[in-house]
Amino acid sequence: MKGFTSRKAPYLFIAPAIILLSVFSLLPIFVALFISFTDMDLAGLADYSNLSFIGIKNYINVLSDPVFLKAIFNTLFYVVIGVPLVILTSLSVALLINLGKAKVFKVFRVVFYLPSVTNVVAVAVVWAYLYNPAFGLFNYILESMNLSAIPWLTEPTVAKISLILMALWRAVGLNMIIFIAALQGIPRSYYEAAELDGANTWQQITKITLPMLRFAIFFVSITTMIGWLQFFEEPFIMTKGGPLDGTMSAALFIYKNGFQLSNFGYAAAGSFVLFIAVIAVTLVQYKVQNKESDY
């Protein structure tokens, strides 16, 4: 690198992106931390002299707010049920597609990936219609098979599962692709050696494929878990957090308090609790992963 221009050049190239990222990703963290200790609301927004420091009062209030606790419980429910479901389903689909030899199997990649690229709002609108208790397709199918109708979105626990099913449908595609990519990275010779030793398909999957996929499974479980912790659009469009806050997620709670009730300080405190959870989950997973690879 010679000359003055070329020494300055890299900074000019990265400057626009770095400035935008600093203003809209890094600075906000400090702003959020700051206002989470204040009573920032519409009055505070209009004139900063109306702001006052209230210490950790927001945190105390939010952690004893029954709606927030419910939102945390629901979010854990989404994580605990959703993450294994997503991993199991996308891994099974990936294995089946990868083992298939005919050309048709490439078509399945597209079919299962399709929901991932589509608009979450549009899809939520469609699923709300499918789930409709009176006119929905799902209950019609159940009833025509002489099964009883399911209160898809009207009973708190069932509604959570209904939202999970829809999100699962959207999540399979991308994770399946990640698994397929990882599967194709496993050397053929491993399987050939196992076959010579007389291992059947199932043994090959459990003894070679799954151990070799450890990093992909780790990656998918972390991204999926973070995704579920931020679960927002689906409950926002389909249930508005109801019935009885039964589908309220932590993210939706923050949005509602921030932008519908204008309790910015309070919502910021809630968002920090969520942020700490995201960081904790990532660190724990990372530790577990490191331990496992010690073997």
């Binding site: 890299p10 990265i14 992106a17 770095i18 990222l21 203003v23 809209f24 990703s25 890094l26 600075l27 906000p28 963290i29 702003v31 959020a32 206002i35 920032m40 927004l45 973070i226 912790l229 931020q230 927002f232 932590a250 993210a251 923050i254 949005y255 921030g258 932008f259 910015f264 919502a267 910021a268 968002s271 920090f272 969520l274 942020f275 995201v278 960081i279 990532t282």
Partner: peptide, 27 residues
């Protein structure tokens, strides 16, 4: 500062939009 800045860029991927949405609105 290349490595430090690049690390900072990658770190922004970890920040959930729920944390940034209120401060970004205020900014």
């Amino acid at each position: 500062g290349k490595d430090g800045i690049f690390f900072m860029v990658l770190a922004t991927m970890m920040i959930p939009s729920q944390v940034t949405m209120i401060p970004v609105y205020l900014i």
